[in-house]
């Protein structure tokens, strides 16, 4: 049901100077970690995969999911979810509305959508939080909601941009487990950008070092 995320000879350059070149495959249910000091283009790599890379950056090569070439598609048609270091919950929407924003439009009917949102909240132990203002949540709760928002859009791959670095150490382990378990359950290929070796260790997958 799920496919591997493949970067085929993906090369990003800035004014004719190559920043990095990657050729890798992330298998469904596995986590590949990208490490490297800041300034080596980790965020640029994620932008290239999502499809938001802008001039003066240029890219060549392909981003594929299974046999599908995603490169010509706009970000909203690629089916790749992303979690950032900041929760980036939409501040003007309630928790439930944030989740409903992510919920796939294929699920129709007000009651059914509301039920799906409630079920998603229950799955992250946040039943009854639907009407809350996201600004009133704790750091861990915000991360859980933004994870669930990403998963509700039924992505076929998940990108993580240092998603645990703003959490304290105790919470970090819990959240790693939650995110990796959820991705594994759904058989999603996960690409994680991080500068924390513990993240990569917890992920248990291959580690690719950019630059340096």
């Amino acid at each position: 049901m799920t496919d591997a995320l493949r970067l085929e000879d993906l090369r990003v350059s800035l004014r004719n100077e190559t920043l990095f070149a990657l050729d890798l495959e992330v298998m469904p249910g596995h986590v590949t970690s990208i490490m490297g000091p800041s300034g080596t283009g980790k965020s640029t790599l994620l932008a290239a995969i999502i499809g938001t890379l802008r001039p003066p950056f240029e890219m060549s090569g392909r981003v594929c999911l299974g046999q599908t070439d995603l490169t010509p598609l706009p970000p909203e048609a690629r089916g790749i979810g992303i979690l950032y270091q900041d929760d980036l919950l939409f501040p003007h929407l309630s928790v439930a509305e944030n989740l409903a924003f992510g919920l796939s439009p294929r699920l129709r009917g007000r009651a059914a959508r509301r039920a799906a949102v409630d079920a998603a909240l229950a799955r992250i132990d946040m039943a009854g939080f639907g009407d809350r203002d996201p600004a009133t949540l704790s750091g861990g709760q915000k991360l859980r909601v933004s994870l669930m928002r990403a998963l509700l859009s039924e992505p076929r791959a998940l990108l993580l941009d240092e998603p645990f670095s703003s959490l304290d150490v105790a919470l970090r382990q819990l959240m790693r487990a939650l995110v990796f378990d959820q991705a594994r359950d759904r058989g999603l290929p996960v690409l994680m950008v991080t500068h924390d070796p513990e993240d990569a260790e917890a992920a248990g997958g291959p580690v690719v070092t950019l630059g340096g």
Partner: peptide
């Protein structure tokens, strides 16, 4: 913060 736009796009919004 344009990452809000990126997030919304990856959630399927045009």
């Amino acid at each position: 913060d344009t990452r809000y736009a990126t997030i919304a796009c990856t959630l399927g919004a045009r």
